[in-house]
């Protein structure tokens, strides 16, 4: 988020200068109301996450609404079947903009162990997914991490671009996070190899220092 700079600490009112995009993003990312689409066992972990032990109220996301009209982030928790896919897509369409999707667990991310005629092999074939959470089911910590990553993503959005113009992505810290690749050190040419191929052995390239440029 953009910085909230105390402009004049000596003034009696105390005011801040900031950017309108930063304020909107700050409001959005700290009030992410989830739409819990608990489809199987992941739904139990999702309930644990909302409950007092893990308590996503710390991140402003505790207000789980069971009406899509009041939600910001749809958490698809569990195995999505093709029969349920129509309902999931309808719920997504009924959510007001802006909206985000978290694919919780391997089933919703890839179909998981259900390589089956009945199961959607990854909900990204019907919904635009922002964050994928691996695990079967993932621990609530992992989903909280996904929520924080989503907040980081929202920070860089430019919500009022249509009104005021400006860049697509806010990057006032100069970190260039949009193009930053956390796995840039991985040699992409080896990712297509079969794991048993000796050229795909884990070496310094994938897990250690980036390979020195010759």
């Amino acid at each position: 988020m953009g910085s909230l700079t105390p402009a004049d600490t000596s003034s009696e009112g105390g005011f801040f200068t900031t950017q309108i995009n930063a304020v909107v993003n700050w409001g959005r990312k700290n009030s992410l109301w989830p739409m819990p689409l608990g489809l199987s066992c992941c739904g139990i972990e999702l309930m644990a996450m909302i409950g007092p032990k893990f308590d996503i109220a710390r991140f402003g996301a505790e207000a789980a609404r069971f009406s899509p009209r009041q939600c910001d982030v749809m958490i698809v928790a569990g195995t999505l079947t093709w029969k349920m896919a129509q309902a999931a897509r309808t719920i997504y369409d009924q959510m007001p903009e802006p909206k985000w999707v978290i694919a919780m667990g391997v089933c919703s991310s890839t179909g998981g162990m259900y390589d089956s005629y009945a199961v959607v092999q990854g909900i990204d074939s019907i919904l635009p997914v922002d964050i994928y959470v691996p695990g079967c089911p993932p621990r609530p910590d992992a989903v909280i991490d996904a929520l924080l990553k989503l907040q980081k993503k929202i920070e860089r959005e430019s919500p009022l671009k249509d009104i005021f113009g400006g860049p697509d992505v806010i990057d006032d810290r100069g970190t260039d996070q949009r193009t930053y690749q956390p796995n840039a050190a991985v040699d992409k040419s080896k990712l297509d190899l079969h794991p048993h191929d000796p050229r795909a052995r884990r070496g310094s390239v994938a897990h250690g220092e980036p390979e020195a440029k010759a």
């Binding site: 093709w82 896919a85 129509q86 390589d115 089956s116 005629y117 009945a118 959607v120 019907i126």
Partner: peptide, 13 residues
């Protein structure tokens, strides 16, 4: 004789 990955499983959707 039905394949376990189905025949066009996404057709109805």
């Amino acid at each position: 004789d039905f394949p376990h990955q189905g025949i066009e499983p996404d057709r109805l959707y």
